[in-house]
Design a binder for these strands. Structure first.
Length: 668
DNA sequence: TACATACCTTTCTAGACAGCATGTC
DNA sequence: CTAGAAAGGTATGTA
């Protein structure tokens, strides 16, 4: 099947041809046959008689880089009415926004927390790219544009499985379906074990495929050799080196680019440093490998200089130093500019190696010839866990640059005797099934309030009916959300956010909490803290920062033992401006110290401390500072609204606003 | 005195969504 | 109240 055969206006056919798309990949053909194209478009070009369905909802569980974006574009360009493209990350929203803007004559909008646009404006676009939370928020606040949508594409729909964000995604999808009954939904998923269940839920056709534009060879490294699935081996002598470094050197010596996944920022940094010190890349280029082999080209000195020019901390200058040799590290402690610099330079084949934490597997597309997964464990709140098969496969999927590599290689590093275990667990094994995480207190509390506050339900029966159309209910029709829903209602009544006068309704407070999009627990914490703060003689920026840092929507910073004493001392010295007192403390003191540490960092930040000093003193990366500040700014905005609502007398509202503005003004 | 060794203690551990108003290329 | 690796610290042993 060729682009010219598709029922598309000629300008789009030309556009796709310019992009190098001539004939469709097999998974794309399957998606077309499953019905992503709209009936209107099909009729107008006298197709439709060949048994191809049209205007169907489709779930495509196909590999990364097998052309999902094009499938989405086909669905959106032939949709009756505007389309919505839902992504999990703001960086992905930006990437897709730019991609769709290339489409001739198509008006594209973007709706995320950091790009604003009014409802009316969004309604004028043909395509709106948005994060799932932004869509949820728009629905809660009754944005009109949402109801006009003809097609919604949900990227990375397997994230329904995510504990923290999956529930919002499924509630949002269920709400979209309810608001616009004829909605065409296109779910784009990684390969998972139960894509059929997701498709059933959406009443969609399922498309699955293993096909990739570049072959992928996966294997395990042990005892000086990679053993690929199928039994082929490749000797990679370690020569006394760490296995990971041998694998990197081997890939680079062949002219390939290499991506290494590790499980901590420190490990990513240290590995990049070691590889830079060794000069892996210059060794390789001196052996005569060139761009002709799909290898690196261009001078990394320019990237290094670009990074250095905006580097303000040790992390930034170290990154620039290593980049000079063609090696970089990548994790969320980096400023987003530096992250983009590294990603772009790698895509342009200027950098040869990136040592990264799992951020890179979830983010924008950065393919490499060889992917090395060094660490297959991860730290969580309750200990060390093996990485899910799905996540390791996502990392694997970054191997193989279309048009450059004959094949991609993905290698797990075994550490001794576990090679057989690793092979069994990850190589050729099926990824996990996606399971709904809606049935937990945090999710229900939030979505019960949102559903009542936006007028979608005014009784527990209504609520149960709304939740009855979620993925959770579809997966387990016999499951009963009654108990946990009642718990949530009871909590919200107790907190004064919902009133039960025969019918359930949101109080003004409840509506506000839902609208500013904070966890009801955060809303309650903030109110309690505002109340305590009225007892204080004076309030300062530290007061309000402590207030927002000590909520569930803000995570504390790690406090080491040696720090705890000084921090406690600091708390006592500042008792006059803190809403919680050390002397008669009630609750988890350790957790509070963590909040206080974050508050203190932010207070130093708005008082003009430079990033390098803070990074040093608090043991955080420059990216963390920016992200924490952004989050605090958002929470202070919510706090300000709440303070106005309860007409707090302490004059604290003014301090909240000043602190929020100070955070917004502070630049790196 | 200098150093090796065993054992115990401490530290450290991925990521990133939302609101709103204002200024900037 | 959960896990595990690595770094740091201390007591003891040995030349």
């Amino acid at each position: 099947m060729h682009v010219g055969d598709l029922p598309l206006p000629p300008e789009f056919v030309d556009h796709f041809r310019e992009e190098g798309i001539e004939s469709l990949y097999p998974p794309q053909v399957a998606a077309v046959e499953a019905g992503v194209l709209a009936s209107g478009a099909s009729d107008s070009s006298s197709e439709g008689s060949d048994g191809i369905a049209t205007d169907e909802s489709v779930v495509a569980a196909i590999p990364t880089a097998s052309g999902k974006t094009f499938v989405a574009e086909l669905a959106m360009l032939t949709s009756e009415g505007p389309s919505l493209f839902i992504v999990p990350l703001r960086a992905l929203a930006t990437e897709k926004y730019e991609t769709f803007q290339e489409l001739p004559g198509v008006s594209v909008g973007i709706a995320t927390g950091d790009f604003d646009a009014s409802d009316e404006e969004l309604g004028d676009h043909d395509i709106v790219v948005a994060t799932s939370e932004k869509v949820d928020s728009a629905i809660r606040n009754g944005a009109g544009w949402v109801e006009d949508i003809g097609c919604a594409v949900v990227d990375e729909i397997h994230l329904l499985d995510s504990r923290s964000r999956g529930p919002t995604l499924e509630v949002t999808i269920a709400n979209l379906q309810r608001l616009t009954p004829d909605l065409q939904i296109v779910g784009l998923s990684a390969t998972v074990d139960n894509a059929d269940e997701v498709a059933d839920w959406l009443d969609a056709e399922l498309v699955t495929a293993e096909w990739r534009p570049v072959d992928l060879r996966t294997g395990v490294y042990a005892d000086g050799a990679i053993t690929f699935e199928g039994g082929d081996t490749r000797a990679v002598p370690a020569d006394g080196d760490a296995p990971t470094e041998a694998l990197v050197r081997d890939a680079v010596a062949e002219g390939g680019q290499c991506l290494v996944f590790v499980n901590s920022r420190g490990a990513a940094h240290d590995l990049a440093r070691d590889l830079a010190d060794e000069g892996v890349v210059s060794d390789a280029t001196s052996e005569g490998e060139t761009a002709a082999n799909g290898g690196v080209r261009g001078d990394p000195a320019a990237v290094a200089e670009e990074i250095r020019s905006t580097a303000t901390t040790g992390t930034g200058t170290a990154l620039a130093e290593y980049a000079e040799t063609g090696v970089a590290f990548h994790h969320a402690g980096l400023r987003s500019e530096h992250r983009s610099n590294v990603e772009a330079a790698f895509r342009d084949r200027v950098l040869s190696v990136i040592c990264a934490t799992p951020t890179l597997a979830a983010g924008v597309n950065v393919p490499a010839r060889r992917v090395v997964v060094r660490d297959h464990h991860r730290y969580t709140d309750d200990g060390v866990e093996s990485l899910p098969v799905l996540e390791v496969h996502q990392m694997f999927g970054r191997a193989g640059r279309p048009g450059l590599d004959p094949y991609g290689e993905a290698v797990l590093v075994g550490d001794g005797d576990d090679a057989a275990d690793l092979r069994e667990r990850y190589i050729g094994a099926d990824p996990e099934a996606v399971t709904s995480k809606l049935a937990n207190d945090d999710a229900l509390r939030t979505h019960v309030l949102a559903t009542v506050a936006s007028g979608f339900a005014d009784s527990r029966e209504d609520l149960l009916e709304v939740f009855g159309s979620t993925f959770y209910a579809h997966q387990d029709p016999d499951a009963d959300l009654t108990g946990i829903t009642d718990d949530a209602i009871a909590y919200l009544e107790e907190a004064g956010m919902i009133a039960d006068g025969g019918d359930l309704s949101a109080t003004e407070l409840g509506e506000l909490v839902s609208q500013v999009y904070v966890d009801p627990l955060t809303g309650a914490d903030v109110l309690a803290a505002l109340d305590r703060a009225t007892e204080l003689d004076r309030v300062e920026s530290l007061t309000v920062l402590e207030l927002v840092c000590d909520t569930p929507d803000m995570r504390g910073s790690y406090v080491r033992n040696s720090e705890a004493g000084r921090l406690t001392q600091f708390a006592m010295n500042n008792e006059a401006v803190l809403a919680k007192s050390v002397s008669d403390f009630d609750g988890d003191f350790q957790a509070w110290l963590e909040s206080l540490k974050t508050a203190r960092l932010l207070d130093d930040w708005i008082h003009g401390e430079d990033a390098a000093a803070l990074a040093e003193r608090y043991g955080v990366g420059p990216g963390d500072i920016r992200r924490t500040a952004e989050r605090a700014e958002w929470l202070l905005n919510a706090t300000e609204s709440l303070a106005e609502q309860v007409e707090n007398e302490g004059g604290i509202t003014e301090t909240i606003r000043e602190t929020r503005e100070a955070l917004g003004r502070r630049q790196p």
